[in-house]
């Protein structure tokens, strides 16, 4: 049963990643791109979680915890940069 679940999840996540990448390509502004990349990072995290659950290991657990923080720092940095640069 788990293989079926893994396949369904794979299809769903691939579709989601494709949509996010379309937004990265089309996004009119850098803010939309960074937002879409944040979503993409979370999709990668989701894939890692699925992998951990299906294959029953905990190798990427720390990355899952770290990814939230990394995505946060990246997003905040870019948005600060956008706010600041507009004024100069």
């Amino acid at each position: 049963m788990m293989t079926a679940v893994a396949w369904i999840c794979g299809v769903l996540l691939s579709a989601a990643a494709a949509l996010a990448i379309v937004r990265v390509a089309r996004g009119p502004s850098i803010l939309e791109r960074v937002l879409a990349l944040d979503v993409l990072l979370m999709i990668v995290v989701a894939a890692l979680c699925v992998d951990m659950a299906v294959n029953r290991h905990t190798d990427s657990l720390v990355f899952v915890a770290a990814a939230c923080v990394i995505g946060f720092i990246g997003t905040v940095t870019v948005s600060r940069y956008v706010t600041d640069r507009r004024n100069s």
Partner: peptide, 8 residues
């Protein structure tokens, strides 16, 4: 995740 993608 797909919902986020569609929403984006």
């Amino acid at each position: 995740s797909l919902a986020a993608g569609i929403g984006m």
